[in-house]
Each structure stands twice: as C-alpha cells, then as structure tokens.
Write a protein that binds this DNA or RNA. Structure first.
Length: 490
RNA sequence: CGGGAUGUAGCGUAGCCCGGUAUCGCGCCACAUUUGGGAUGUGGAGGCCGCAGGUUCGAAUCCUGCCAUCCCGACCA
C-alpha cells in the first residue's frame, strides 16, 4: 500500500479513483469498463443487500430469478423502452467458437443464432413476458417480485461503481389490479430506499419525481432519491417507477376483475445498484480515506496491540480477548490485528484508509492503568478511557458516529442548497458554488433542455411534498407554482 | 464514437530528441535491530521497455499499423 491519497481539493475525481483502489474496494478488470469488486468492497455490498433484502421481504416481496438473456423481439414490444436502451445493449449473435486451422479461436459463422439475444440492461420485458402466464385473476394480484442480478449497459465512459458496463443491482417488478395500488407501491419502495439511504448509509436524500426528460424509458412516472456528493454534484441513488399499463399492454397481461371484466394490470419497477457504493464513498470520506457508517462497516471496531516482546503481547492479547468477546456479545464486529509484520502506525493508517469506524489501541501503559485508547474515524479524535464497561461505551460510540456522519452530510447539503430567482444568479451559483439549486421552472421540456444545453445542469427532481409558491420561471418568465431542484449530476 | 495525452518490474517513474539490452523511489523476499502514528540497516529477487511489422551490425529510443488506458465532449443508474 502506498502512502497518501490525492486530496479532494486537489483533484476530486482522482481522489475518488485512488480511494476505491487503495481502500481495496474494487479495481479495473482486464475487461474494458468492467470492474472486479474486491472482498472488502463486496462485503460492504453484502451488508447493503442484507438490509435491503430484509426490507423487501418485510414489505411482502419475494425473490426470484429471470434469465440474463432476452430475445431481441421482446425488446421491441414497448416502443419508448427500446428507444431508451437500444444504444447501449450487448447482443449475443453466435453460440459456438471454432479453431480456424492456424491455432486461432474464432467465431463459428455457421453457429449464428436465429434470433439474437440481448444481455439484459434491465428485465422488464422478460419478466412481463413471464408474468403473462402467471396472472389470470385479481386473485393472482398483487404480484410482488424482486430479483438480485447483474445487468449490462454498454456505456461510453465508465467509473468504478458509479458507471460500469456490468453492474450488480436489484430490480423489483410488481403487478397490481389498480392504478392507485401501483402508485402506492412505487411510493412505498421509494420510501424504503430513502430510509435505507438515510438510516443505514447515513446519507441524506431528497425524494422526488423526475421530469419527462429524465423519466425511465417505458414509465409513466419515475420517482427517485437524489443525494449530494462532496464535490457539489448530485447522484441519483435509487429509482422507483410507475409503469402504468405500458408493459401489460405490450405483453398482453390481463386479469379478470371481481366484476368479471378483463383488464390490463398495473405495474411498477424499482432498483438500486452497486452505484450506492460510489454514493457511500463520496458522501462521507475524507483525505485520509474511507469513512464508513457503523451500520454498514464490515469491521466496526479494530483493536491494535502495541507491545515490546512476545510476553507483553500475550498479556495484551489476554485482555483484548475479554473486550472482543464483550463486543461480539453485543453483535459488534471486531477485528484484533495482532500481525507482527506491520507496526502500529502502519496499521492505524491502513484502517483509517479503510474507514473502520472505531479503533482501539492497547499497550503496556493501558495494561497497567486498566485503560484503552479509543479513536473514532469520523472526527479523527482519540482519548484514553477506562476499560470498565468498555463494550457499552463502544456501543454508544458507534451509534453516535452513525448519527454524526449523517448530521455532517445533512449540514453540508443544507449549506449547498441555494434558492435562486434569476437565470444569471443560477449560472453564477452553479459555477462558483455548485450543489442543489432550487429554482422556478415553467414545466416545459424545452426550457429544461435549454438549461441543460447552456449550463449542463439538469433537473434532478421535483421534490415530494414540495411547498407551493407563486413564482416565475427563471428562464422564460412564465408562471410557476413550485421550485424544482437543479444540479450537475453524475 | 470524435478531440487530446500516455503505455518502461506489483505501483509510481528516468532514459527516447541525439540508437549500443534499462534509472530511481515505493512495494516484495531474507536476516538483524525495532514497536504509543505510515521503522532502520545490510543483502537479494523481479523487466521479451503495450503488441505486430519495418529500418539498422544493433531499437525502449527512428518509421508504419494495431491494441489498451486516462482526460475532454456526445450517451447514461
């Protein structure tokens, strides 16, 4: 591991890239645009999965698994859906390789697929094709399914976690008897995401609705949670779509209602991806490395012995054992790092880089005084405390850290949210300060496109429960009844 | 997919203009001394210089083609 990290102020983008690789989260693979998620990074993702999966189940959903490949013809069934994804699909055309006689392996042109297969960029089509066979009656509804899967979107430019050609995600796909019920599901899942972002990731988000331009291909409405990163750019952290009857019509999924009428079902889909890893990294980390919220940290507490000779190490280890078992009894994950190959200072730096929330250090002095050094990652402060009831202290401290990093991110977002009333002011804030900009907009796609064209900023969302206020669009001067949130986005 | 830059040990690099088989740092291995914030010393291993051609007695260096990566645009979770 090399020393030091590019600072955020020097080059935010480089800081991010270095952090991801140096903290052992992920690395570039030899496949262009695809990453290898390393064990430490994957264990964070696993924690996210576990929490989300439980929330999905609590809200009545079951997991299932649908194929990686989608027949091309399925794709063409929903017009706006194809338009949205056509330019970024990987296509399987052949099913066999052969030796060309010169020792080279080539595609066997004779083994051409009759119908090409698309590697799923999302699964609406294959799933709705399947649902057709599952739904006949209102008694079959609602159908509440989630799948954990990989998807492929052939992006031009990729960045570790934020945008990779292949990524991991979950996609929920539900079918309902009524529009109201489907809308309620869309909102419910958005709330699940928001709750997860704020209470587990410690990352404040704005819940809102996307404008027509930013809507998911095939949806009637897209709701989202938007987070603000430390460089003042917005990141969409999760989406929940109300699909109306678009897919039911495209795939002819009908049910007989209580009244005996044949009707198309109403659909939703919702997802979060490994992009959340990027959000988590950029929301809290500092120039020393990762800062992880205790609730998602693979290692919550690390203990480092400081000793001279094997005899002292043995004494320290015996004391540490009491602490680790007390912490484990409280469900806290602890690592005792007694490696003899690295010195304490090295370990301190390493665990800071990896974002371990609490570090305990015990040396000869502590042994005599019944004390231990407690260092917290979020504030980078340390103090020497009595070992009496240390597990209680640590448990409280972890909760405090979780709250503190949320508060810090929240305060940052508040400070970086600016209300503006003129386009000049808008451009000035965008250029000099960044962050969320709250402004009046006339509600048209044309104006939104013009702003994007001229400033690169997009409407991140129309916040839910948005205060209604009379105003005029900052660009066209046309009347507006609410403010929307603009930002430069990832 | 356009515009620019760069490919030399696991990582970061010097050498390239002016051709002679490669420099330095970190990391790695061994031993010793060390251990309350990224240890020190001594010794050691590791390279078809991105790939393929060409020019030349001789190519990391010159020429041609290809590939890859990064940055900037258009596309996007």
């Amino acid at each position: 591991m090399s020393k030091g990290l590019t600072s955020r102020s020097d080059d935010y983008s480089q800081w991010y890239n270095e952090l991801v690789t140096k903290a052992d989260l992920a690395e570039h693979s030899s496949v262009r645009g695809c990453m290898v998620i390393k064990p430490y990074g994957y264990s964070i993702w696993e924690k996210m999965q576990a929490v989300l999966d439980q929330k999905f189940k609590e809200t009545g959903h079951s997991n299932a698994y649908f194929p990686l490949f989608i027949p091309k013809s399925f794709f063409s069934k929903e017009a706006s859906h194809v338009d949205g994804f056509a330019t970024e699909c990987a296509v399987v055309t052949h099913y066999r390789l052969k030796n060309d006689g010169n020792g080279n392996i080539i595609v066997d042109e004779e083994a051409k697929l009759e119908e090409e297969l698309i590697v799923r960029p999302t699964s609406e089509t294959i799933i709705w094709n399947t649902y057709k066979g599952w739904i006949q009656s209102y008694r079959d509804l609602p159908l509440l399914i989630n799948q954990w899967a990989n998807v492929v979107r052939w992006e031009m430019r990729t960045r570790l976690f934020l945008r990779t050609t292949e990524f991991l995600w979950q996609e929920g796909h539900t079918a309902h008897a009524t529009s109201e019920e489907a809308i309620a599901e869309t909102e419910q899942m958005l709330n699940v995401y928001a709750d997860f972002a704020e209470n587990w990731m410690a990352m404040p988000v704005v819940k809102g609705k996307k404008t027509a331009n930013e809507r998911f291909a095939g949806a009637l409405d897209t709701m989202c949670i938007e987070a603000l990163m430390q460089d003042g750019k917005a990141l969409q952290a999760g989406t929940s779509h109300f699909l109306g009857q678009n897919f039911a019509k495209a795939f002819d999924v009908k049910f007989t209602s209580k009244e005996g009428k044949l009707e198309h079902v109403w659909a939703t889909s919702w997802g979060v991806s490994t992009r959340l890893m990027g959000a988590l990294i950029m929301a809290h980390s500092d120039d020393q490395g990762l800062v992880l919220p205790p609730k998602l940290a693979p290692i919550q507490v690390v203990i480092i012995p400081i000793y001279k000779g094997d005899e002292e190490l043995a004494k320290i280890s015996a004391e540490v054992e009491k602490i680790t078992s007390a912490l484990k009894a409280k469900g806290i994950s602890v690592k005792y790092d007694d490696r003899d190959t690295q010195r304490p200072g090295f370990k301190f730096a390493e665990y800071e880089l990896k974002g371990v929330p609490v570090r305990l250090a015990m040396g000869g002095r502590d042994l005599e005084n019944n004390t231990i050094e407690v260092a917290r990652r979020d504030t980078r402060t340390k103090e020497t405390l009595s070992r009496d009831k240390i597990a209680d202290t640590i448990e409280k401290l972890l909760k405090e850290i979780q709250t503190n990093i949320y508060q810090k991110a929240h305060t940052f977002r508040e400070e970086m949210t600016t209300k503006v009333d003129s386009y000049d002011e808008f451009k000035k804030v965008l250029e000099e300060k960044g962050g969320f900009i709250s402004a009046h907009w006339d509600g048209t796609s044309e104006t939104e496109a013009k702003i994007k064209e001229e400033t690169k900023a997009t409407i991140r969302c129309i916040p839910l429960n948005n205060p209604q206020e009379e105003g005029v669009c900052m660009v066209t001067g046309k009347p507006s009844k609410e403010r929307v949130i603009f930002a430069l986005a990832y």
